[in-house]
Simulated assay, not measured.
Amino acid sequence: MTVDKQLMMKELPETERPREKMLAKGAKALSNAELLAILLRTGTKNMPVNRLAEQLLVKYELSGLGSISPQELSKTAGIGLVKAVTVVAAIELGCRLSRKEPAERPVIRNPRDAADLMMPELRYQTKEHFVALLLSTKNHVIARAIISVGSLNASIVHPRELFREAISYSAASVVLVHNHPSGDPTPSREDIALTKQLVEAGTVLNISVLDHVIIGDGKYVSFKEKGII
C-alpha cells in the first residue's frame, strides 16, 4: 500500500475502518459498501477505498455486480483486473452459497416451494434461464437441469432437450421454471404456447409437467395457479 493510500484510510476513525469494524462487531455490522471496500483493499490517489466502493454500488447496484464480468468491472477507474476478479469471485461464492441445497433434498409441494428454491438463483439474471426441476414420485428434487439460456422460444427449448434430462434422471415429473429479466413475471403468449407444447409431450412420455413458474423480481407467476395448465 502506498503512503497516500495509507493516509486516506487513516483519515477514518479506527472504529469506522471496515476491517477493524468487522473484527470488532462482526461482518453483519458492515454495510454493503464497507464489505466491498474490504475486497477492494485500496482506493486511488484521490479517492479513499470506501468512496470507491460506494461509487461502484451506485453505478452497478449490488445485483448488477453479480452479473458483470471482471473485464467490464476493471474498466472503472481505480479497479484493476486483480481487484475485479476478487470482487466477482466473492460475489459468485455468495451466489453459490445461497443456492446450496440442504442435505435433504427439497420437496416441491406447491408453486411457492418452486419459487422459493429458484428465486435466489434466477431473480437477478440478465438473460432468461429455463430450468427444469426434476422430481421423484414423492416430489423430491432429484436435480435441477438448465435447458436453455437466452430468449425463450420453441426453437431453443425443445421437448427433446427437456425430456432427455428427465429420462436420464428417471424423473417421475417436472416443474418448469424460468425468469423474466424485466422483473415482471407475467406470462407472454410465447410462454403459454411453449408450455402447452411441453405438457403435451410429457403426456406422451408419461412424465407429467406439474407446473411452470415464472420468476420476477421478488415475485412469481404459477401457470397451475392461473389455470393455464
Score class of each variant (00 low, 15 high):
residue 89 A to T: 06
residue 89 A to L: 10
residue 89 A to E: 12
residue 90 A to N: 07
residue 92 E to Q: 13
residue 92 E to D: 09
residue 92 E to Y: 15
residue 93 L to D: 10
residue 93 L to R: 15
residue 93 L to M: 10
residue 95 C to P: 11
residue 96 R to K: 13
residue 97 L to C: 08
residue 97 L to Q: 06
residue 99 R to D: 09
residue 102 P to C: 12
residue 104 E to M: 14
residue 105 R to P: 09
residue 106 P to C: 02
residue 106 P to A: 04
residue 108 I to Y: 05
residue 111 P to M: 02
residue 111 P to E: 01
residue 112 R to G: 04
residue 114 A to M: 02
residue 119 M to P: 05
residue 121 E to Q: 08
residue 122 L to H: 03
residue 122 L to Q: 02
residue 123 R to P: 11
residue 123 R to D: 06
residue 124 Y to Q: 05
residue 125 Q to S: 02
residue 125 Q to W: 02
residue 125 Q to R: 09
residue 125 Q to H: 03
residue 131 V to C: 03
residue 132 A to T: 15
residue 132 A to P: 07
residue 133 L to A: 07
residue 134 L to V: 01
residue 134 L to T: 02
residue 137 T to E: 06
residue 138 K to H: 13
residue 139 N to F: 15
residue 139 N to D: 06
residue 140 H to Q: 11
residue 141 V to Y: 14
residue 141 V to W: 11
residue 143 A to C: 11
residue 145 A to N: 10
residue 147 I to E: 01
residue 147 I to V: 09
residue 147 I to C: 03
residue 148 S to I: 02
residue 148 S to D: 12
residue 149 V to D: 00
residue 150 G to E: 01
residue 154 A to R: 15
residue 154 A to W: 11
residue 157 V to S: 08
residue 158 H to C: 13
residue 158 H to Q: 09
residue 158 H to A: 11
residue 159 P to T: 08
